[in-house]
Design a protein around this nucleic acid. Structure first.
Length: 325
DNA sequence: ATAGGTCAAGCGAGG
DNA sequence: CCTCGCTTGACCTAT
C-alpha cells in the first residue's frame, strides 16, 4: 500500500529524512552546542560522578537545542548520540548529583519531540555484541542496551519501534546461524524498555548478516524489525536485489513506519583510495523508496547539511516541477 | 590557543 | 601482525 505524507507546505513526500548524532552547525557555535561531551577513562576515574553529571546536564540541555533547530528546519527524524551519557554502563543515573536536573532535561527534550512529531532513535556501539560466545561480552552488551532503554523511558518515548534502539547482531564467528540463535536467547535477558524498542540492521560484510538472514533468524523468532541499510546491502546482499531486501525489511515493521539508513561511499565522492564502506560527506543520488513510506537516516559526515543539500537537489526541485505542472 | 597523540568496549576485512 | 571502520571526533597535555 502506498502512503503519502503531507508536509507543512502541502507537498507530497514519501521519505522523511533525518541525520545522526551531531549538528555540525550548532557544534561550531561558541559556546558549542553538542550532546557529545565525554571523557577518557583516566578522567572518569579521577573526577568521578560529579563531573559525569556536569557533562550530562550540558549534553541533555543541548539535546533540546538540537531538536529545536531541527524543528525550525523541518527535520523531524534524529538519531541521538550514545555519548550523551558518558560511561553510563558504570553507574545508575539516580546516583548522579544532578539526577533531578538531568531527568527534567530528558523529559523536556522528549516531550518537545512528542509535541512536534519528531522520531528519536539510538544506535548503540559496535562493541555491543549480544551474539558473543563470551558471557562477559554479552553481559556488557545487556547493560549498555538497557541504559539506552532507560534513557528512552526518561525521554517519555513510546515503548515500541517508533523509538528504536538499533544494533547489529554483532558477530557471526564463522557460524552465523548458531550465532543468531545465541542472539535470540540473549534477547530475552534484556529489560522490557529495551526489548520493545530493539531493531536489527543488515551488515556490510559478506560473511555477516544480510536482510534475509535477519528475517529468518531473528524476525521470524522474535518479531524484531529490520532496519534496511542501502549501503550495507551492496556488500552483503544475501542473493536479493535492493528492492527485494527493502520490501522484506519493510514488511517487518507492522503499523510503524520502517526506518532505513542511507549513505554513499567516500572513495567515490573524493576519488581517493579508502575503505569502500567509509561514508561520504554528502549524498548525491536520489534515494529509491520503491513506493514505500520510509523514514531514512542519512549517514553522511556533513550531517544536517547533507539533509538540507539533498532537499535542495531533489525535493525542492520536485516541488518546483509540480508547481509548474 | 592550537597541535598532535590518544582514546572503554568487539568483530571482521584487508594489508 | 597491524590498522581501519563502525553510532561519533572529542579529550588531554604540551607548547
Amino acid at each position: 500500500m502506498f502512503c503519502v505524507k503531507i508536509n507543512k507546505k502541502g507537498a507530497t513526500m514519501s521519505i522523511r529524512l533525518g541525520y545522526a548524532c551531531i549538528n555540525s552547525t550548532l557544534s561550531s557555535h561558541k559556546p558549542r552546542v553538542t550532546t557529545n561531551r565525554t571523557m577518557i577513562k583516566r578522567t572518569f576515574l579521577a573526577k568521578g560522578l560529579p563531573y559525569v553529571s556536569e557533562l550530562i546536564e550540558k549534553n541533555t540541555e543541548d539535546l533540546l537545542k538540537i531538536l529545536q533547530w531541527n524543528e525550525e528546519h523541518g527535520i523531524t527524524l534524529f538519531r541521538m548520540s550514545s555519548d550523551i551519557t558518558p560511561w553510563a554502563s558504570k553507574y545508575r543515573f539516580e546516583e548522579l548529583p544532578g539526577y533531578e536536573k538531568i531527568l527534567s532535561n530528558f523529559q523536556k527534550a522528549g516531550n518537545f519531540a512528542l509535541a512536534h512529531g519528531h522520531r528519536l532513535s539510538f544506535h548503540p556501539g559496535a562493541f555491543c555484541c549480544l551474539a558473543s560466545p563470551r558471557e562477559k561480552v554479552v553481559q556488557n552488551a545487556i547493560i549498555d542496551l538497557n541504559v539506552h532503554g532507560k534513557i528512552m523511558d526518561m525521554l517519555n518515548q513510546p515503548r515500541d519501534h517508533n523509538a528504536k534502539i538499533n544494533i547489529h547482531v554483532g558477530g557471526a564467528y564463522g557460524e552465523p546461524t548458531v550465532s543468531i540463535e545465541r542472539f535470540c536467547k540473549n534477547f530475552d535477558r534484556l529489560s522490557e524498555a529495551t526489548k520493545t524498542r530493539l531493531t536489527l540492521e543488515n551488515d556490510d560484510k559478506k560473511n555477516m548478516y544480510s536482510v534475509k538472514m535477519l528475517y529468518e533468524g531473528a524476525y521470524k523468532v522474535l518479531g524484531i524489525p529490520i532496519v534496511f541499510d542501502y549501503h550495507h546491502h551492496k556488500f552483503c546482499a544475501g542473493g536479493m536485489s535492493e528492492h527485494e531486501a527493502l520490501e522484506m525489511a519493510a514488511s517487518t515493521w507492522g503499523n510503524i513506519i520502517p526506518n532505513c539508513h542511507y549513505s554513499e561511499s567516500q572513495c567515490i565522492e573524493k576519488n581517493i583510495k579508502c575503505s569502500p564502506t567509509a561514508h561520504s560527506d554528502y549524498v548525491y543520488n536520489k534515494i529509491n523508496d520503491y513506493g514505500l513510506n520510509l523514514d531514512v537516516c542519512l549517514e553522511a559526515k556533513a550531517k544536517e547539511l547533507a539533509v538540507l543539500k539533498y532537499r535542495e537537489m531533489f525535493e525542492n526541485h520536485e516541488i518546483a516541477l509540480r508547481n509548474v505542472v
